[in-house]
Design a protein around this nucleic acid. Structure first.
Lengths: 100, 100
DNA sequence: CCAATTCGTAAGCCATCACTAACGGTTAGT
DNA sequence: ACTAACCGTTAGTGATGGCTTACGAATTGG
């Protein structure tokens, strides 16, 4: 039901870069921005989108705010993709049965 | 390596509608357009994008041109998503071992 | 209490993209 | 050969969205 948000969120290259940067572990906004060719506020905006899509979670840590990947947010998208394989298999099966 | 194209292609709602319309089976452009709130050329443009992303294949059939889903085009995207689960599991494992 | 650090937000600019309308090409049938 | 059906492409327009700069909020440490 929420795979649309995950798709639109991950469609942007910079946002994917932010997301993949978190693969190395949780970190703050400034640390994410360093190493990316965009400003810190831009990263903050991207994180907001990723958070609304359920792909990241944040936690206050002093003055900083630590972000980390929330892989569960990808579940709906994954299920949606899998349904196409099921359809493809069913269609292939029907096609095979039609030849008998 | 081509999951970026699949993501950007499926990020558009209308394009997703076109893609899901083909779930019911192969059909022509006019048939896809009927039932969608956009014009036929718009559908044609979306199909071009989906084709470049390897998500659909087309085949001439008289004056018509039949499109159908090419599920294999989703494989790279699927693999990419799965890699995040692997990372999540590894991270969880490391976290558990740290507590021992 | 004051200064420094870290971050989110608002405003504005610019590029990208989806959409329509009009045209041209190709095939099937008479 | 002519007509009809089906489709792809182009040009132009309007809207969406990402980026930067500037500002304000919250917390830590001296």
């Amino acid at each position: 039901m929420a795979y649309e948000l995950a798709l639109s969120s991950l469609s942007d290259p910079t946002r994917r870069a932010v997301f993949e940067r978190l693969r190395t572990g949780p970190m703050g906004v400034a640390e994410i921005a360093s190493g990316l060719p965009v400003s810190r506020p831009a990263v903050s905006q991207h994180l907001k989108v990723l958070k609304e899509a359920g792909l990241v979670v944040d936690e206050p840590r002093g003055t900083a705010r630590i972000y980390r990947i929330h892989a569960e947010g990808l579940r709906d998208l994954r299920d949606w993709l899998d349904s196409f394989w099921d359809d493809a298999l069913t269609r292939f099966k029907d096609h095979a049965e039609r030849d008998t």
